[in-house]
């Protein structure tokens, strides 16, 4: 009986994966190449995939951060920006960018687009899928390039690498922390919560569901179940059969979500430093609510709008100031696993 149920389950997941693949194949018509440099991609290159909208102010730092880390080629989808994002990206030597004016929501919040590009260009590559406000940190990232990590993962037969989204915030009200183009966002928002995260397992996809942090304690005090998910699996050795099913929180086939150990040990993992809670949040929230293109009827953004009027201060005396990955490792927010 048990095996029949699980067979049925596997079949259901397989169908779901196929449906996703079909969706992303259909949504590929949304995308118009603006700058296609994908022919530059060499077989060993590490790629980065991102869907952006009006992020011009963030991109210079974003690109330089990831170039330093060892990203060889960037794949961007620009969702109809009007702030010069597209033009800026099209000028970059290592960026391929596609434009679309279609609905973000109807493209399952952008993942149909990324799934399509990943399937087309990332097969066989290690690829990092992140938002423009997410900055990847992994064990030894100050002394070893990203390729050292991916080579090690290859050597140990691992296909996906898990992280936690770590919300960073400034000391004062977030409106008072002006960010300017090209700046390291963690100069103005270096603080984070170190020990108030809650985890449960998602029985459908087998991924962990992590919530908590400053947004949960300030914005979702009364409805913690609505607090945003912080679990992310951004780094994957892609195969054309793979799909992201819900942002980068979960993938199919389900084996890719097994980035955690269940027998007491620790697998290696990283963190995505999240530079969302800075002054750009205000404009973003206004804009996104106008579009109404976000998850759960943009409930998250509605909550932000209500709270932002009170000029929230996330900082408290227990906030930790970011120093380096070793600090996160000691705090238990990431792990070296058996990488030494």
């Amino acid at each position: 009986m048990g095996s029949r149920v699980s067979l049925l389950d596997s079949y259901r997941m397989r169908l779901r994966r196929k449906r996703r693949l079909l969706r992303c194949a259909r949504r590929r018509r949304d995308l118009t190449p603006v700058q296609d440099k994908t022919r530059q991609i060499r077989p060993d290159d590490i790629l980065l995939m991102s869907v952006v909208r009006n992020e011009k102010i963030r991109l210079p730092w974003f690109l330089s951060y990831y170039r330093k880390l060892g990203i060889d080629h960037f794949l961007f989808v620009d969702n109809d920006s009007d702030d010069g994002t597209l033009e800026f990206l099209a000028q970059q030597p290592d960026v391929s960018v596609w434009h679309t004016a279609s609905s973000y929501r109807r493209a399952t919040f952008g993942i149909d687009w990324s799934n399509h590009l990943l399937r087309r260009y990332a097969h066989g590559h290690w690829v990092l899928t992140v938002d423009p406000d997410e900055f990847f940190v992994y064990p030894f990232c100050d002394t070893r390039p990203l390729r050292a990590l991916t080579d090690w993962l290859d050597g140990t037969g691992v296909r996906s690498f898990g992280t936690m989204l770590l919300d960073m915030y400034p000391e004062g009200p977030i409106q008072d922390a002006p960010y300017h183009e090209g700046q390291d966002p963690f100069e103005i928002a270096p603080w984070f919560d170190s020990g108030n995260y809650v985890i449960s397992k998602n029985p459908d996809y087998g991924n962990l569901w992590i919530q908590g942090g400053p947004r949960a304690r300030m914005f979702f005090r009364d409805r913690p179940e609505k607090a945003p998910a912080l679990n992310k699996i951004p780094l994957v050795r892609w195969d054309r059969r793979y799909v992201y099913v819900s942002s980068t929180h979960a993938l199919l086939p389900r084996g890719l979500n097994q980035v955690y150990d269940e027998w007491g040990g620790e697998k290696a993992s990283g963190a995505l430093l999240h530079a969302k809670l800075i002054n750009t949040l205000g404009t973003k929230v206004q804009e996104e609510l106008k579009r109404g293109q976000h998850y759960r009827g943009s409930a998250e953004y509605k909550a932000y709008l209500a709270q932002l009027e009170n000029r929230p201060v996330f900082w408290c005396k227990w906030s930790e100031k970011y120093i380096n990955w070793r600090q996160l490792e000691i705090l238990g927010l990431m792990s070296k696993g058996n990488w030494a």
Partner: peptide, 12 residues
């Protein structure tokens, strides 16, 4: 692993 730690890569 570290006893009493629950995180993205340790969830016993």
């Amino acid at each position: 692993g570290r006893d009493g730690l629950y995180m993205q890569s340790r969830f016993p």
